[in-house]
Amino acid sequence: MIAFYNHFAFEFKTGLRNSNNLMMNYLFPLGFYAMMGLVMTRIFPGFDQVLIPAMVVFATMASSLLGLPGPQVELREAGVFRSYKINGVPAISILIIPVLTTIFHTLIVSSIIALSARPLFGGVAPLHIVPFILITLLAAFNFSAISALIGVISTNSRATVLWSQLIFLPSMLIGGMMVPISMLPEGIQPLTALLPSSHAMQAFLGLAYGQPTSFNTTVSIAVLAISLLLAFGLAIHLFNWDTKNKTRRGHPLMALLVLIPYIVSTFLV
């Protein structure tokens, strides 16, 4: 328990000490939130309805997808995981503790957004608080698990950027955060079900805001939960202490299995 506490405390402080992590955990999401709050609520009528969930999903993606995999790869390549291994640090701790601390940072930023959006930018508060909190947690765990998987399969920092942006950029464009899915071209709409951000946004709108949704929210919740479990399972299975040793238990392309629930959901939503 002391080991877990020390490890958690160290990783949490890393999220504040490391300039890149500080940027992705706090400065980037809060800066973007301030900009969206100031600009989008004025030029896009109705954006106040989605300001909080959209910015919570954005903050979650920024801290996890952009902040989590890079340092994991750097530590592994620097031999830190080898050092951890010989000192008895279990692989599960190496994977799960950074995920938990990232979620912790995300929850702090999400709280700031949820509490300040209404007084600062006229953002609409959720009707149902408990579903809002649960979906925030589910989305945070989901993105963090996918990010941990990206960190595990990437051979270098450039690869983490590539994989992360493959999710991050489409999410920003067609994930329902900036533009409602219903306003996208009909040919594009089914493809949005391939993105976790779309499911998170639809779950927020349907279950926390009581608004009509483009997706079946039960399916969205199931997709987020199943992909979260798949991503963690695959990250643990494919975890490698040291790229100099061929100890990986499967091919990195196995990570694509995490797409299964999303692909299936395109037929169900």
Partner: peptide
């Protein structure tokens, strides 16, 4: 784990880990 002590040729510690934290961290494990 508890039978050998190892000093690796490469660093083996995260760059932002403080000296006191490193001692607490590894001793706890």
């Amino acid at each position: 784990k508890n039978k050998i002590g190892i000093q690796l040729q490469t660093s083996g510690l995260p760059g932002n880990m403080k000296v006191g934290e490193a001692m607490d961290f590894f001793c706890a494990y």
